[in-house]
Amino acid sequence: MQTEILIAGFGGQGVLFAGQVLAYAAMDAGCEVTWIPSYGPEMRGGTANCTVIISDEEIGSPLVLNPRGVIALNLPSLDKYEPLVKPGGVLVVNSSLVNRGSRREDIESVFIPASEIAESLGNRRLLNMVALGALVAKLPVLSLDQVKRALEDHLPERHKQFLQANLQALDAGASFALSVSRVGV
């Protein structure tokens, strides 16, 4: 059983870090996992994405055409990756930064105002954790607790002062996702 998650947004939105938190949680849960970023100059001021694959056996390709879960933190990412989500998969969209609704009926889309929720928690930069919380709530691969524990265990020492806020953001994202109904807004 293999689950693929792609996280995309602007550089600086914490896309790569959100993927790493997931990867740590998977590793700590004893799963096989790969994390692979888009890299190079295209990241400069532009978009960034990473793919995380979680599996119970040796992972082949670290990149997939049709991921089961996608987080799109901005409009270009939504336009690019919405059509690629595997049927039956989950799409989490940062509705704070997009001006349109869902275009797919065969996936579960969660439009979450992640930037605003993050701001209400006191820091706009928490939006990646808000969105990750929403994805984890909807995708049966790792529990929210596992992800929170991974954050506790692996957040670099110099960022420890942000731990509580990050945990809150995960919770806020998860409860938002669980409170909204199925299929797009």
């Binding site: 590793m27 996992v33 790969t34 994390w35 692979i36 970023p37 890299y39 992972i59 670290p62």
Partner: peptide, 10 residues
């Protein structure tokens, strides 16, 4: 290759 270099795995 660039994938092996940039990828993270346990």
């Amino acid at each position: 290759d660039g994938n092996i270099g940039q990828m993270m795995e346990p």
